[in-house]
Nucleic acid binder design. Structure first.
Lengths: 102, 102
DNA sequence: ACGTACGGTAAGCTATAACTAACATAAGTC
DNA sequence: GACTTATGTTAGTTATAGCTTACCGTACGT
């Protein structure tokens, strides 16, 4: 159930946008906030959620803080989704087979 | 951006529990509600969300409705997570390499 | 030491998600 | 056609997520 925080973090579109920027390249809070239609504190709050979910790591550089993507949490979520995906496909192909047979 | 509804649906723990049951085997609403600590209408509402997200298909059988897992939406989400995961690993290994080099 | 830049924190507001209880609907049963 | 079973729908409540504004802390430059 480690992926609870991961899924909760990713369910917000603004947070996904932020994470996508960070994944593309490590960035400071200011850089991230610059292009977004929300205030800098709002970005800070989103970053806290991402950091708590371990989707992102904070790295201090003087007065700035650089945020960098962390793959571990995504890896766990990936495994979970993958498992369910395979199981769901099985359920679906069963249904297809049954329909074809009738 | 098709995975917005998928992620929103999966972000709720109760909904994940419900989906996991359905993935394990197709079930009726009553069967699902039986083991859960929430009311049957609540289950119905969760199922609506799962159905709207196309994580689940409804199949009528007399007065009952059987819910079955649908792999398509999970597949799309899987691809998205996978892409980000790879990119995040890249970002992380860069950092590791940089640390090793210093 | 003072000023400035960068960013986290707190308080307060608003929208919405998740739940229950009560009602509505639809399909089999006699 | 009334009765029952199985499920969706509506109304109303409560908790919480996400936002903004205002404030606080910390590091660097002079």
């Amino acid at each position: 159930m480690t992926y609870q925080s991961t899924l909760a973090a990713l369910s917000d579109p603004m947070r996904r946008t932020i994470l996508e920027r960070i994944v593309e390249a490590p960035r400071s809070v200011g850089e991230i906030a610059q292009d977004l239609p929300i205030s800098r504190p709002a970005v800070s709050q989103h970053l806290k959620v991402l950091k708590d979910a371990e989707l992102v790591r904070e790295e201090r550089a003087g007065t700035r803080r650089i945020y960098r993507a962390d793959g571990a949490a995504l890896g766990e979520l990936r495994a979970y989704i993958d498992e369910m995906w395979k199981a769901a496909l099985g359920s679906f192909s069963e249904a297809a087979a049954r329909e074809g047979q009738d």
